[in-house]
Design a binder for these strands. Sequence first.
DNA 1: ACTTTCAGTGTACGAGTGTTGACAGTAACC
DNA 2: GGTTACTGTCAACACTCGTACACTGAAAGT
Lengths: 192, 192
Amino acid sequence: MEAALRLMSAGRSYTSLSLREITRAAGVVPTSFYRHFSDVDELALALVEETGLTLRRLLREARRAGVPPIRIIAHSVQIYRQFVREHRLHILFMASERWGGSPLIRRSIRYETQHFATEMAQDLRELSLLPGLSMGTLQMVCGLVVNTMLNAASDFIDLPADQPQVEEELTENFVRQLRVIFLGAAQWKDNA
Amino acid sequence: MEAALRLMSAGRSYTSLSLREITRAAGVVPTSFYRHFSDVDELALALVEETGLTLRRLLREARRAGVPPIRIIAHSVQIYRQFVREHRLHILFMASERWGGSPLIRRSIRYETQHFATEMAQDLRELSLLPGLSMGTLQMVCGLVVNTMLNAASDFIDLPADQPQVEEELTENFVRQLRVIFLGAAQWKDNA
DNA sequence: ACTTTCAGTGTACGAGTGTTGACAGTAACC
DNA sequence: GGTTACTGTCAACACTCGTACACTGAAAGT
């Protein structure tokens, strides 16, 4: 799995990786692959699951931080950016195979992101940010947030690593987009 | 180009298509490919460009409609959904290779979508929706809108074609997300 | 009428592909 | 101490792949 991610870090898409390439990168003979997965798709599914765990850890970290409610967006974004840096390859995988891979992979990624959005919605509810919004609405908003997060991650990822001020700009844009969303959510009237 | 899109309509990603497959689907011998493109990437770039034109036509249509400003979102979404239905394959290509393909393809798609967002921002300005927002802010909001559009398109596209009520649900969700965004944009204060 | 361009065909190459089957060592279990 | 499960290796299979080269016929240009 690590070898597959490593290969993708050069800008390749998962679908374009061959079984032999992956085993070669893993320092193992092709036939050994079948000892662990029956398919390249199966490896991908395992990666999705692993990334799901990783994402849930992100929420836990964000939750744990004491929340001065004004700066909560900027702060969460900071955590997220750090997170993207640390788990760069997992996030890259998730974000770029979300629409790219086989239907099977797409479906499992969609499941994972929906799960993530749901947890986020529950968090928002428990923290009583955005009070007065129905659970359905919260779910909708969180879906939007998650999409925005993954888009931003993709932007971060094939950034020319030597221009920190472009990264700064991108982060700024990301924060502002989230702010728009939460501004809108705060204004939302469920019956309208 | 049409053959490539056709192959993708079965859920395959562009990157996973081989030159031979494409020519086979086009009813032509592999070597003929080189008469038109020197590369599969070059074909992809041509597709991106064609889709760009298509997208700009979308804006023109949306603009031409008389605007009862309350219903403008719902109405634009209707146009967009119709549009996704008609140019299904092009939109599918655009949305799914956005993060998937070679770095070259990614870059050209990004260029095209940014261009699209810019035009949309200019439209908003001319129609004086969202007055009081700087051009930079409008650009940021439109970027968010375009991302949301493409995400929705991807959702539309691998929908089980026999469940119209799921599609209805998805559309409803899409409209609500856009409404959140525009609500937020209307509340935006540039100096904050 | 002669030539150039264009789009297509056929053959052929070397390289890479997924998968099978038989075999080897090493750890774990009773 | 013998059996079983695990993980790995090697050789081989029938394919597919991208690309090079030489060739053909039709259209367009002068």
